[in-house]
Amino acid sequence: MSLISGLNKEFESRVRLGIMSVLMVNEWVDFTEMKNLLQVTDGNLASHSTALEKNEYIEIKKEFVGKKPRTSYKITEAGKLAFQQHLAFLEKIMRQ
């Protein structure tokens, strides 16, 4: 078993780490706020959030507010658990 075998490959990207970190401390975050916090492009945020949604780590809600579309993100319970395990393993590596 390698030193890094316990790390979750889904969180290797800095964008995905950022998305998960933001969502760990916020209930819902809309697309524009997330994009500004992470300073990424629309496409970059969309592709990484879609990948996290496919793994059921986040929920993506698309709705209309008036005539404007709004996309929002929320972490799932499975996402919280997976991210906490990932962070715990990182801490374990640093202590060794």
Score class of each variant (00 low, 15 high):
Arg14His: 08
Gly66Trp: 02
Thr76Asn: 06
Asn8Asp: 15
Gly18Gln: 07
Lys74Pro: 03
Ser21His: 06
Pro69Asp: 00
Lys9Thr: 07
Gly43Cys: 02
Glu91Ile: 11
Val15Glu: 09
Phe31Trp: 04
Gly66Arg: 02
Gly6Trp: 00
Glu59Asn: 14
Ala78Glu: 15
Ala51Phe: 06
Lys67Met: 02
Thr50His: 12
Lys80Ser: 11
Val40Leu: 10
Met20Arg: 03
Trp28Tyr: 13
Ser5Ala: 09
Lys62Gly: 05
Val29Tyr: 07
Glu59Ile: 14
Ala78Gln: 14
Met34Phe: 09
Gln96Arg: 10
Met1Gln: 02
Arg70Ile: 12
His86Glu: 12
Thr76Pro: 07
Arg14Cys: 00
Phe31Pro: 09
Thr50Gly: 08
Glu59Ser: 14
Asn36Asp: 15
Glu53Ser: 13
Glu27Thr: 12
Leu90Phe: 08
Leu90Asp: 01
Arg70Gly: 00
Glu63Asn: 12
Glu63Trp: 00
Pro69Gln: 08
Ile75Leu: 12
Gly66Pro: 04
Phe83Val: 05
Ile19Arg: 02
Val25Pro: 00
Asp42Gly: 02
Leu23Ile: 06
Gln39Thr: 13
Gln84Ser: 13
Thr76Phe: 01
Asp30Glu: 11
Met1Pro: 03
Met94Ala: 14
Lys80Val: 07
Ser5Phe: 01
Met20Lys: 04
Phe11Asp: 03
Leu81Ile: 15
Ile75Asn: 09
Gly18His: 05
Phe31Val: 04
Val22Trp: 00
Thr71Ser: 08
Leu23Arg: 07
Ser13Ala: 07
Leu81Gly: 02
Val22Ser: 10
Arg16Gly: 01
Leu81Ala: 11
Glu59Pro: 02
Leu7Asp: 01
Asn8Ile: 01
Ile75Asp: 09
Glu56Met: 08
Lys9Leu: 04
Lys68Trp: 00
Phe83Ser: 04
Lys61Gly: 02
Val40Arg: 13
Asn36Glu: 15
Leu38Asn: 11
Ala46His: 13
Tyr57Ile: 11
Leu52Thr: 07
Phe89Tyr: 15
Ile4Tyr: 14
Tyr57Phe: 15
Ser5Glu: 12
Leu17Trp: 01
Glu53Val: 12
Ser72Met: 10
Ile60Gln: 12
Glu33Val: 14
Arg14Trp: 03
Lys9Trp: 01
Ser13Cys: 08
Lys92Met: 08
Leu90Gly: 11
His48Leu: 04
Asp42Gln: 10
Ala82Gly: 09
Thr32Met: 08
Phe89Cys: 00
Val22Arg: 06
Gly18Ile: 00
Leu87Ala: 10
Lys61Phe: 10
Leu3Arg: 06
Thr71Tyr: 04
Val15Gly: 03
Ala88Glu: 12
Thr41Val: 04
Met1Trp: 01
Glu12Trp: 07
Gln96Val: 07
Leu87Pro: 03
Trp28Met: 14
Leu3His: 01
Gln39Ala: 12
Leu90Arg: 06
Arg95Asn: 09
Leu87Tyr: 07
Gly66Ile: 00
Glu77Ser: 14
Gly79Lys: 06
Lys68His: 01
Ala82Pro: 05
